[in-house]
Design a protein around this nucleic acid. Structure first.
Lengths: 181, 181
DNA sequence: GATTTTACCTTGGCCGACCAACTAATGGGG
DNA sequence: CCCCATTAGTTGGTCGGCCAAGGTAAAATC
């Protein structure tokens, strides 16, 4: 297929030609993956100084917004797997950002809230997210930004209904992913 | 939303400043994160039946394209951390998708190639990626698709230069992330 | 009131991905 | 020729994230 690979055993493959044919099916998918990774790395870099790992900020933001909240509510809000949230909360609790106590009204549930100490991070995290947004959208003018937001929202909807459709098709199978669209 | 919160003033209001919607700073960033997660889940669902975990398809695609390749080349091509690639290759080798042998020309290096058995997956993986692309772009017309691709490429570029800038600023620090833009 | 069902969380296992630190081989200057 | 910086890969640790399975408590049903 690829003419250059068939013939030249020498290395020094020119970087620019490094777009393999596999990218041909799914250029946007590849782009999404790469953007996601870069975005996550950028977030991690900005969050690192605050003592947060990428992903935790979602939980903290919701806690800062909502005050004490039942863990199930939190899980529904962020749309993650319950076990993921459990472990993240265990780590956040150990690092002092979060406090948990049993719900007096329901002995199965537990209430989660951000600690007072963590509130000092609120502004810093918001600032970091602002900076992240700035870095992300740097180079796009206003109309491009709104257009990107619109398209992403549309893609999100599509992927969501796709996931729901797949889940519904597998409803008899023991598969019950965290679907929350 | 949060209608019940407003309805219950007795609820422990957050001790931190009551900020309505931390999502406000960084709407596109939030959207990117959610889309990325949904996209990865969709990819995982499509890849699961093929015995591949999400992320491995990148490696396999490159191997199918390039034949036997030095591991360092592979690492450069996918842009991942070397240790990540090492572990993924160990698992892919154990599951029979990949073969590794030492490079006779350089005793440090090792050559990686896809096994013949794995080649049966090639078409299936391409098909899966095609389906993923279809699900992702479902609901977008042609101009929207090209526009999305264009905007994503621009964002990718921005995030890349941002990362490079940050890395350069930290060049004295022991930080040397896998930057490859 | 007893039984089934459902909801809430936890644990263990696995994988992708990162960083830090390490070994080993290569190759370039004194 | 030897020393030293660079390159190639590996290991260990940590985290986010998923799935599968389990245990306990509330709610629904009988």
């Amino acid at each position: 297929m690829t003419a250059e690979a068939a013939q030249e055993p020498s290395r020094q493959t020119p970087q620019c030609a490094a777009v393999p044919g596999a990218v041909l099916d799914g250029p946007v998918s590849h782009s999404i993956s790469r953007v996601a990774r870069l975005h996550r790395i950028a977030a991690g870099r900005l969050l690192r100084d605050l003592g947060l790992h990428p992903g935790q900020e979602f939980l903290m933001m919701h806690l800062w917004d909502s005050g004490a909240v039942r863990q199930s509510e939190l899980i529904k809000a962020v749309g993650l797997d319950p076990s993921t949230v459990t472990k993240m909360l265990q780590r956040l609790e150990q690092s002092g950002h979060v406090r948990r106590r049993p719900d007096p009204a329901d002995r199965r549930a537990s209430l989660v809230e951000a600690t007072e100490a963590s509130c000092g991070l609120l502004m810093a995290v918001r600032e970091a997210w602002g900076e992240l947004e700035r870095q992300t959208l740097e180079g796009l003018d206003a109309t491009e930004r709104t257009e990107l937001a619109r398209l992403l929202a549309k893609v999100e909807g599509s992927l969501c209904t796709s996931a729901a459709r797949a889940a519904e098709a597998d409803c008899h199978s023991p598969h019950q992913g965290p679907l929350d669209c």
